[in-house]
Simulated assay, not measured.
Amino acid sequence: MISPDTMLFLEERLSQVFERTIQIAGARPVSGGSINVAFLLHTSTGEFFFLKVNDPELYPGLFGKERLGLMSIPVRTPNVLVEEISGLHQLLVMEWIPSGSRTERFWENFGQALAGMHQITGPGFGLNYDNYMGSLPQINEWRETWVDFFREQRLERQAKLATDTGLLPKRWLKNLEGLYYELPSIFPEEKPSLVHGDLWSGNFICDQQEMPVLIDPAIYYGHRSVDLAMTTLFGRFHPRFYEAYHAHFRLPENYEQQWEIANLYPLLIHLNLFGGSYLESVTETLKQF
């Protein structure tokens, strides 16, 4: 549970934000991702806020980088109200967004919004700061091409971690080398897109106006296939999502192949975080090369 000192600290900071007295009446544990402790805060006047708590020594700058990511996304995101370190905890307080119904209209709105976001481009592939993908550091050093960035900053780093820990047998590195040779033909040159970076089904909300709200970003300027691929990783989104996206930002003919290869990165992440149950998914893709 939240300590009395932390509760008083949050009341003080929220009172400063809203320029009126905020009294927290209670805190209920809720889901906040695999590495955070999270609470739904309710106040004496019936307001609600979402609180994440984590260890600043284990994950330095985690919430500061999450705040920067949320602020960079043109699609609606929760407003960040407090992002500070108090004692042994880093704290992130955001507005609480009630969920609405995921109608076909919502999925159309979502597809159109993501297509618009992906048309925001940058000076290259990467970002001017590193962030996190789950609990793993995500390195975003700039590269001029997607092929170089994807190979060096995504696949090679995660494959090395997996082989160093024995999770990925070293014989599969030959298949990775074969994949690297094919990457230019799989991903023809395309401008960098602003991507969410971790767009699985748990990282968005449908608000009560049937509009998408994005949460838990791992942003950078990358290839738009990384977001679209992740929407298929644990079961595809509604067909209207893809139809609306395609209508506003045409998909390439080989988009299915691009998505399969792009998903190697989150699969390697999952292999490194959660162990051997993800090895078969990684090796099934690598067998092609």
Score class of each variant (00 low, 15 high):
139 I>C: 04
152 E>K: 03
145 T>I: 01
186 I>Y: 07
153 Q>P: 14
216 D>Q: 12
171 R>C: 12
167 L>Q: 08
163 T>V: 14
193 S>Q: 04
192 P>K: 00
171 R>H: 12
211 M>T: 12
220 Y>H: 15
227 D>W: 11
206 C>P: 09
158 Q>R: 15
183 L>R: 07
218 A>V: 12
204 F>Q: 07
176 L>G: 01
142 W>Q: 01
189 E>C: 13
215 I>H: 07
207 D>S: 07
171 R>L: 14
202 G>H: 14
143 R>M: 12
165 T>L: 11
177 E>D: 15
142 W>F: 13
207 D>Q: 10
205 I>F: 04
170 K>E: 13
173 L>A: 02
168 L>W: 09
149 F>M: 00
224 R>C: 08
159 A>V: 05
146 W>Q: 02
162 A>P: 11
196 H>T: 04
198 D>T: 13
224 R>T: 05
142 W>M: 13
158 Q>V: 02
188 P>I: 08
225 S>N: 05
203 N>H: 08
182 E>N: 11
214 L>S: 08
169 P>E: 07
138 Q>D: 02
180 Y>E: 03
161 L>I: 04
168 L>F: 09
152 E>V: 03
177 E>T: 12
221 Y>E: 00
205 I>E: 09
143 R>L: 08
176 L>Q: 04
214 L>Q: 11
219 I>T: 06
143 R>C: 15
222 G>C: 06
